[in-house]
Every structure is written in C-alpha cells, then in structure tokens.
Design a binder for these strands. Structure first.
Length: 496
RNA sequence: GGGCCGUUAGCUCAGCUGGUAGAGCACUGCCCUUUUAAGGCAGGUGUCCCGAGUUCGAAUCUCGGACGGCUCACCA
C-alpha cells in the first residue's frame, strides 16, 4: 500500500523533478534568497492603465509572483503571474532574451514562483503585459496546482490543504481578510470606548461560564488535570471585582461537542463587561458594535446572507421571549400548563427530561417554534431564570432574567445580561444547574473562588458575548463556519 | 452517535438494464513570434476505496467495512 503511494506520487512528480534537475545542471539554483521588486502587480497595472497600444512604458519594472498559466507559441511564450493581490500577463520573446534563458523558461511549470523584469505594454487585446527581458526562477514548485478549469472544489482538500484553497480561490483570501478587518474594527471600537483588552487563562482547573463539555488535558509537573476553557466569563468578572470597569477579551474557546456547519471545537469569542451598567446598556453596545462593523468593513448596512437580504440598520427590534413565542407560534406560555407545553414539544419529537422546569420548557418552545423565523436582526430578551444561571433576575418578573440574545437569520449571534453579583444567589443557581445536568459526563463543580470574588463584591455590570466566527459568516456570506476558520479541525487523513 | 448521499486517470467527471473503462484539463514529444479555457498533430494515463458473496463473467448486483460530504442531536 505504501509502496503504491510512493510509486504513483513519483509519477506525478517526475516531470517537475526532471525540470528541477535541468535547472541544477545549468547552475540555476531554483530557491533564491531575495528578489527586489519595483512594486506590486497592482501598482504596475494601475500605473499603466492609460498606456497607449504599441507604446512601451518608460520604466523597467521588476515583478514577482506565482506562475499560474503558460501558453507556449514556439518562439514566444505567454503566461500570467499572480501576487497576493493581482495577476498580470507576461510575454517572452525568444529574440528578447538569451537562447539558453528561453530554453530555461520553457521548462518552467505552473506553480513556480518567478521574478520578471521588463517594460510594460498593451497587447492587441488591450491587456497590460510585461515584456520580459530578464527573469529568475525564485522557487520551484514540485507539486501540481489545482486544475484550472474547475478550480479546487473538493471541500475536504480545501480545508485540509488551505494553502491550495488560497491559491485557487480568490474569494477565500478575501473572506479571511474581511475576518481580520472585522476583528480589528471590534478592537478599535471597544478601545475607543475606553475598554481594556485583557487575556485570561485558557487552561482552567474548573470549567465554567457556559454549559458545554470541555476538553481535558494534563499538567505533568503538577500532575494535575486541566480543562481547556469553555468560556472566559468567570475570570473576566473577577477583573470587575478587582476594579477594572470595562474589559474585553477576544480569544479562543474550546468545546468538546459535535462538529457541524455552525460548530468548530475551537472558536473565537468576544466577551466584554461594563461595570455600573445593566443589560440595556450592553444591548446598545452589541447593536452599535455590529452596525459599526457593517459601516466600516462592508460600507453597507444591508447584507445578503445565503440569498436572504438582511437589514442591520438600527434600531433593532426587541421582543421578550414569551412575546416572541406568542407572536410567531401563537402559544401563550403563561396560560398553558407544563403538560400542554410538553405535548407541543413531543409532537416535534423533542426529548423531555424528567422533572423539567417551566423555564426550560419555555426556552425549548422558543427554540423549536420561533428561532428559525427570526431572520431580520432582533433582540430576544427576558430568558427564563432556569436557563440563565449567570444572569440577574428581571426587576419586573422574578421568573425571568435581564438577558438578551441578538438573532439574525434564525441564529443567536450573541448573549448578554445584567450580571448576577449576589454570591449566595449565584451559588444556589450553580447548584441547581448541577442538579439539572443529567448527562453529567464531566464532574460539575461550583467554582468556589468565583463565589469568593463575588463575596468581595462585584459592581453591578452588564456583559456580552459574541461568537466571532458566526458573525464573520454573515459578513462574508459563508455557509459553513469552516469557511471562516483558516484551519478547521478535521479528522486525520485516512489511508486512502 | 442517527439518517441521506458519495468514493472511477494527478484534477473535474461520464460509464444505461452485469461482458474487466472513457472525456476535458494536467502531463510527454513535435509545429507555431500578440496569445489568454491559445491552437494543431502524436502519446499513456487506472489494484474502477477495501473485503466477501451472487454469476461463466462485477466499476456495475448483494452484504460487511473504511474514508468523505450533507443533515439531525449535544452546543455557540
């Protein structure tokens, strides 16, 4: 089996290996140390846009890039080279360069990285082209590039060999550039509002701050099990206790759950906390933050996601969860009994655990009957207290909390609340959560040190979390979270 | 983990109701001094994912397995 692979692989490589050997024999080292460019391809294209046909540029340009196409015509060669932004045609005439150089050029393969030098002209068809006087092969490519007609479509290869995906699919590079701009814009927005960016531990002794299964790891010297964090929340709140008033963290969370179009085991989360503020303040920040991204990164507040036009223009609607259920599902959760709600859920084949609470039922009804209908941006507020262990109870109704989630395209893209800061209440809620957690694969423990911190006293505060990957998905119209994570987790390659 | 679909040349794919394979791109050689999915002529691509079964005969049918995609569940 292994022998087979080696054999077939060497078949693929053969011609390129021979070309490499050809270069070595002529004393050409195809792994150069540097190449000084006069500019990027984009610069040169812009500079020569007005060039008249039949006229050569005054300046000699030096450009470098990957050879992405070659067209041999006997005594001339056409091709395109591409750098990080643009591609440009190159034109080599046998009369213009030494015979040996011409022979070497004919041995170049698609994928080689080359440097070219020459004047710029426009071809008969008006394409800006480099008339090559000199060239250097900067890096030899030994493996073939993805096929040029169909490009690289195989999703597995695209994710597994992202470098090929980036070479073959321009829009992929663009998506990741937008991702970076979004994160940069979030930072600059929050920094300008006086937030301090902090870093809290990724390795936790007690997993907390969210309801999810953690990854387990081990510290050898301390002979101690550690969990990769599922959320930074409890540490960021400790900072509020410590006296920071506006903090945020943008970093990875790790959750040992299933992988799907919306889930990657490690994902990037923004969490922010504002002292002396409640959930209403934070809700406004969430809206401002996202509208600001739309303005600064895309320049429009109307985005199209998977064929659906989404208008991010503020103000976003706000609906209490129970009101949304009434509006979209016609169910009055106040009036209906628990049994009636359970029957409705069972019709949708939702599993109901024994001893389920009314609050959990309301949350399930919302998820099953309402969520997918929330296409345009909307804040769902007032979540049941049973599903919101870290949120303060509502001033109006103690069965609900001062909590909100912004929904877009049927997906929750964030989560925020008036942070619970009563240590006794918090400890009680933690214990109730542990009781409700019937699956219990990971031993749930109350984070006593966090309770101690609350006992020292945390100012009233509002907090917000936003899943960055999912947010980016909207802005780059990505159907899968894997399209916005450069190297998504995949199973190791099988022995095919 | 459940369900659905897929796996044929390096790549993208075709191969009807079973008679052991085909196209384009890529690759090799030759021709071609403004082409751009360049073109023309010639060349060979291959344990048809693996294993077992049915059959005179399996890429094709049956069963089992591997790998992958989508989807549902857990979750954000």
């Amino acid at each position: 089996m292994e022998e087979m692979n080696e054999k077939s692989e060497s078949e693929i490589l053969k011609s390129r290996e021979e070309n490499l050997e050809f270069l070595f024999q002529r004393g050409v080292l195809p792994y150069k140390y540097e190449f000084l460019r006069t500019g990027t391809i984009k610069d040169v294209l812009e500079k020569n846009r007005e060039l008249k046909e039949g006229v050569e540029s005054e300046n000699t340009e030096r450009l470098a890039g990957r050879l992405i196409s070659i067209r041999l015509h006997g005594k001339t060669i056409f091709g395109h080279i591409k750098d990080s932004e643009k591609k440009i045609q190159i034109y080599v005439r046998k009369d213009d360069i030494k015979e040996e150089q011409f022979e070497i050029f004919k041995k170049l393969d698609i994928g080689d990285i080359v440097g070219v030098e020459g004047k710029i002209f426009k071809t008969r068809t008006g394409e800006i082209t480099v008339k090559v006087d000199k060239f250097e092969i900067l890096t030899k490519s030994l493996l073939p590039l993805p096929e040029k007609w169909h490009g690289l479509k195989d999703k597995e290869i695209r994710y597994r060999k992202r470098y090929l995906d980036l070479i073959a699919n321009d829009d992929v590079k663009k998506s990741f550039e937008i991702r970076t701009k979004i994160i940069r814009e979030i930072r600059s927005f929050l920094d300008s509002k006086g937030f301090l960016e902090v870093e809290t531990p990724m390795m936790h002794v007690i997993p907390g701050g969210a309801k999810a299964k953690p990854f387990l790891t081990h510290h050898n010297a301390l002979d101690m099990d550690l969990y990769l964090r599922i959320a930074p929340e409890l540490y960021l709140k400790r900072l509020l206790v410590g006296g920071f008033e506006k903090v945020y963290e943008i970093n990875r969370n790790f959750r040992n759950e299933g992988i799907s179009i919306k889930h990657n085991p490690e994902f990037t989360m923004l969490e922010l906390y504002v002292a002396y503020a409640d959930y209403k303040v934070v809700m406004q920040i969430a809206e401002d933050l996202i509208v600001n991204i739309a303005d600064k990164v895309l320049g429009t507040r109307v985005i199209e996601y998977q064929g659906e036009k989404i208008d991010l223009s503020p103000p976003w609607k706000k609906k209490k969860m129970t009101d949304a259920i009434k509006e979209y599902a016609g169910i009055d959760t106040e009036k209906e009994s628990e049994k009636e709600l359970i029957d409705r859920l069972k019709q949708k084949e939702v599993e109901i655990r024994d001893g389920i609470t009314k609050g959990e039922l309301i949350a399930l009804i919302f998820e099953e009957f309402v969520e997918e209908k929330l296409i345009q941006p909307v804040f769902i507020t007032d979540f049941p207290v049973e599903v919101s262990p870290l949120a303060k109870k509502s001033r109006e109704n103690s069965k609900f909390t001062e909590r909100f989630e912004p929904y877009i395209f049927g997906r929750e893209i964030g989560n925020g609340f008036s942070e619970l800061n009563d240590p006794k209440e918090q400890e009680k809620r933690f214990r109730e959560q542990i009781e409700m957690d019937t699956e219990g694969e990971v031993a749930r423990v109350v984070d006593k040190d966090f309770i101690d911190a609350l006992k020292v006293g945390m100012p009233p505060a509002g907090g917000l979390g936003i899943g960055i990957d999912r947010l980016v998905m909207f802005f780059v119209n990505a159907p899968s979270i894997r399209d916005v994570i450069l190297f998504p987790l995949l199973k190791p390659e099988g022995d095919k």
